[in-house]
Nucleic acid binder design. Structure first.
Length: 420
RNA sequence: GUGGUUGUAGCUCAGUUGGCAGAGCGCUUGGUUGUGGUCCAAGUGGUCAUGGGUUCAAGUCCCAUCAUCCACCCCA
């Protein structure tokens, strides 16, 4: 293993032997997005750093510790995108989407970068897909989006997962609630674990996520829930989301302690968690973010969105054994026997390909036996051995690789044979 | 970033109290002239993660580094 250059920590190669799984999922995603009439957007891999500090939140770990940032030649700080909503919103504003139409339904798919310590379902370069709806401040749009996510996981065949929902209220009330939360927990601050003491000032909502038993007990007994501190307007909104989900037969659980890692969420939030993923179990997370477009310099625009991790999805699907083996894609393998027939063989390959059949041939000048082994390994439906006899007679034997039976066909009739 | 786990052939893994580097699978070539899958035979393939140390002798013991996986943290 000397002198070999290895891939960067937390990155991985998707090898030819397993790429079909990704393509299968990607194709399914595309078709579901178009069913829901979402259009794709593709934005650059890197952005100005301040885009993320302003959207994701200056005090989050993502911005503080995990961004891949660098100075370009103009000495401006740029960052490999750690999430995609910020980029989509930037693009929405930059291209004046709101003037083209008052509503936009957009989806995206692509690699993101965060400098975290890798573990199962968590990489430094990872792929997310997601969707956003801009321009609706009504529960129908929350539900459209949740339904979309729900349908994706259902249609992919995954069984072991649960949809959780909650509401965070609007910015104003959340601030008030955070003050109340701090006040009620202050007497117990010393009893909290080291992490939670830290989070108490930094992001107190995260205390709800702590797995420490003592912390859980304190939170259960003394922490007020956000739902009890919302306006009737906010509560009604949440009730309507729930009732619409019920009408669509979408199963969910309300988790009154669920919070989000990113700062920009308001009102409805949701998360889909897998039951067989280990500690990185969130397949998908999202919610409403009515202030973000304005915060990033656009005109006030309500929005909902979600983001979902591909790697975790693939791991979960593999655990539920949802991938069949790669399907048979090669129609025919051509085995030329020697230099006298090779030229003609290449022409035949081209002719068959021109008729849209997938063809491969021997490129190593090997023995007939080895070439047949190769045809078998490549899962060809048919094989043809071409030698001098065939060139003289103008006929070849087409062998069916499943049955082993051969059929004699004129060389210029091979395409007719295949089309039968 | 903190704790722990593992690192031997392309892959999955054995390797005894320290004593010649192994198996299965894969790959290559054969098993009478030009036919795969099953079977049989032979062959290919390793600086035992890397660098030090202890020892007559290290895959095995010790230290460090790197990578990996798992949990925390964070998050999709």
């Amino acid at each position: 293993m000397k002198n070999k250059i290895k891939s960067v920590k937390g990155t991985y190669d998707l090898l030819p032997s397993e790429i079909y799984k990704w393509q299968e999922v990607e194709n399914k995603l595309r078709s579901i997005f178009s069913l829901y009439n979402f259009l794709e957007i593709r934005t650059p891999i890197f952005e100005k750093s301040k885009l993320f500090s302003r959207s994701v939140g200056e005090f989050t770990d993502i911005v503080n510790k995990e961004m891949y940032s660098f100075l370009d030649k103009g000495k401006e700080s740029l960052t490999l995108r750690p999430e995609l909503t910020a980029s989509v919103v930037r693009s929405y504003i930059e291209h004046n989407f709101q003037q083209i139409s008052s509503i936009h339904k957009i989806w995206y798919y692509g690699p993101l970068f965060r400098q975290e310590k890798p573990q199962s379902g968590r990489y430094r370069q990872f792929v997310q897909f997601g969707a956003e709806i801009f321009g609706s401040a009504y529960p129908e749009s929350d539900v459209e989006l949740i339904d979309l996510a729900y349908t994706i996981y259902t249609q992919l065949g995954l069984k072991k997962w649960t949809l959780y929902i909650n509401t965070l209220g609007k910015k104003k009330n959340r601030k008030k609630y955070i003050d109340i939360l701090k006040e009620s927990l202050l007497p117990y601050k010393d009893k909290l674990c080291k992490n939670c003491k830290n989070r108490f000032d930094k992001n107190i909502l995260r205390l709800f996520d702590c797995k420490n038993r003592q912390c859980k007990k304190i939170m259960n007994e003394h922490a007020p829930l956000i739902i009890d501190h919302l306006s009737t307007e906010e509560k009604d909104y949440f009730e309507e989301v729930k009732s619409l989900l019920d009408k669509l037969n979408i199963k969910y659980e309300v988790d009154p302690t669920m919070v989000r890692g990113l700062d920009y969420y308001t009102n409805t939030i949701f998360e889909i968690r897998s039951e067989n993923l280990g500690s990185q179990d969130a397949l998908c997370g999202g919610g409403r973010y009515d202030n973000l477009v304005e915060d990033l310099g656009g005109s006030s625009t309500p929005a909902v969105g979600f983001a979902a991790g591909m790697e975790r999805l693939l791991i979960a699907m593999e655990k539920e054994k949802l991938f069949k083996n790669e399907s048979n894609k090669l129609d025919i393998f051509i085995a030329p026997m020697n230099e006298n027939v090779r030229e003609r063989a290449i022409q035949i390959v081209k002719e068959i390909r021109n008729n849209r059949y997938s063809v491969d041939m021997d490129f190593q000048r090997r023995s007939v036996k080895a070439m047949m082994r190769e045809a078998n390994r490549k899962n060809a439906k048919y094989s043809i051995v071409i030698g001098e006899n065939e060139l003289q007679s103008g006929e070849v034997n087409i062998k069916n690789m499943d049955s082993g039976k051969e059929k004699t066909v004129k060389i210029d009739r091979i395409n007719d044979f295949l089309s039968k």
